[in-house]
Design a protein around this nucleic acid. Sequence first.
DNA 1: TCGCCTTGTGGGCAAATATTCATACCGTTT
DNA 2: AAACGGTATGAATATTTGCCCACAAGGCGA
Lengths: 321, 321
Amino acid sequence: MNLPITTDSSTDDQAARAAWLYYVGGLTQDQIASEMGLSRQRAQRLVSRAVAAGLIHVRLNHHLATCQALESALRERFGLVRCRVMPGLGPDRDPVRSIAPAAAEEMERVLREPRSLVIALGTGRALRGMVDALGPAEAPQHRLVSLLGNIAPDGSASFFEVIMRLAEKVRAPHYPMPVPVMADSAEENAALQALGVLRKVRDLARNADVTFVGIGQMSDDAPLLTDGFLTPEELREIQQLGAAGEVAGWIFDEEGRYLDLSINRRMTGVRVPETSADRPVIGITAGASKVVAATAALRSGIINGLVTDEPTARGILARSQ
Amino acid sequence: MNLPITTDSSTDDQAARAAWLYYVGGLTQDQIASEMGLSRQRAQRLVSRAVAAGLIHVRLNHHLATCQALESALRERFGLVRCRVMPGLGPDRDPVRSIAPAAAEEMERVLREPRSLVIALGTGRALRGMVDALGPAEAPQHRLVSLLGNIAPDGSASFFEVIMRLAEKVRAPHYPMPVPVMADSAEENAALQALGVLRKVRDLARNADVTFVGIGQMSDDAPLLTDGFLTPEELREIQQLGAAGEVAGWIFDEEGRYLDLSINRRMTGVRVPETSADRPVIGITAGASKVVAATAALRSGIINGLVTDEPTARGILARSQ
DNA sequence: TCGCCTTGTGGGCAAATATTCATACCGTTT
DNA sequence: AAACGGTATGAATATTTGCCCACAAGGCGA
């Protein structure tokens, strides 16, 4: 039996050390316990806490042939500048787990760029997962800007999370849109647009060098419905007008043509910038329900980069034959 | 029971997918087995194979306070330009496991540099571990050069491994020294030095922008002995002359002053370049037996960067009070 | 001060995982 | 074609892990 090798002050430190000993050192939890002077149960809890808190990241160091094939196919069919396809996790798992690390790698790639960039961000679970999976890279040379308002219909600030957490991680200046995602009326929107702050942020976002967005479906489980932007009746109506998907709140049809809807006249944010080879707009999305929307966004080039998982990639390719 | 989600051709692909499902997806091996249409033990074997083959990398996303403190202390005491201290794994584990990922990160940091660099490399288990832990980064803009001959006394090419494997990974032009590490005599060495190839490689190595080396101890378990460069009698003799350590085969005393030894007149390679803030020489080393040698190399500034583990860091600091 | 609630702890146990072993399979050599 | 060596496989088993529970400690409001 050894004495504790050290006394880490914070619980996170303990958890990180325990996880290190477990995953890197290959010790059993019993050994970790005696090494660190703990009970076995505590060691076990520390390890799982470290995993849950994202102190430990696992990455795959091997490009699966099947995924690579799907990447090439997507790249070619839609002229993508970036494309990653990760293995699927089976139908019962949240596909965000699978794509978050790959999305984070794409983000890290952008963050490493030494010249100062404007990075625009949407919202959503996929982006949130991406930020959580990011390593500790600092990149104060870039500016982070929100594509859409950060105040949800219920008044909560949950939409701040992506940009704020990212900014905190990389210590970059950030420009959230501190207004509701959607004004109550076209008139109120005009009033908001007149605000100097908002104009500045919108201008920045419109000229972003790189953009990361999630993609929303317009089926009955549409995020716009869940988040309270649309009533079920409005959603049904919009569906009948041909809505297939939405990026940063801007709704488009199956061909990826933006629809002229009254709801869009109330959006305080901007559409994603026009894509080009050196201005990538990267969609982060996976799941069976996203296939229609993602295909549409790819068809018209609303996005020209994609991070997704295997079944979704297959779905998109099948759909766009 | 599901059908197999896909048929991966190569075993590595299968292993990578199984490990992905296991570590990222959090499936049990039973679930993986039915997902992939395999027996449970095959799934288990695939997962452990993926780990063993380095298809899966784990990284710690949290700077331990104690390690950070050691880093700062080392940085300050020896004026280091780079310093990483990783948690120790306890006395029974190979410390290379712990430092290899950190060393790989340092290497990746260098490889990301867009302007073309000359990267010089020593040999040894620590460097070998570093290369194995490297991700799949490509960096064809750099040149890799060996600091010392790549042919071992027994004629084997084991010393090629570090530079060759690295070159293969990053697809960079590489310049090994295709001569014995040590000539049989000073005269033979002079003859070898006259070779044009060797001169070129030596010039390149001497002007390297960044250098990665292991550090050899000169105690009775010296690598120079194990690898057959010295007889036990020679070693004892050199020890009595004050030998404390060795970097790329060049032996120095406890103060890090190079010794003028007959053995060194037979070395075909070069010493590591003079260190400066923009020409880092990074030592990768850990283990109780390395403390004396590492301290010496740090004292005189033979190296100005260090990747090590916690107990070694403590040992170095204690020794250099 | 008491009681209540949150948080953390270790014991015990079922589930999951790793290892061992005998056997089957495949390609090669004789 | 038979013998051989190496490798992969599934069954059995030993070890390790994850989880539930009951309980203790400490904070907080009544």
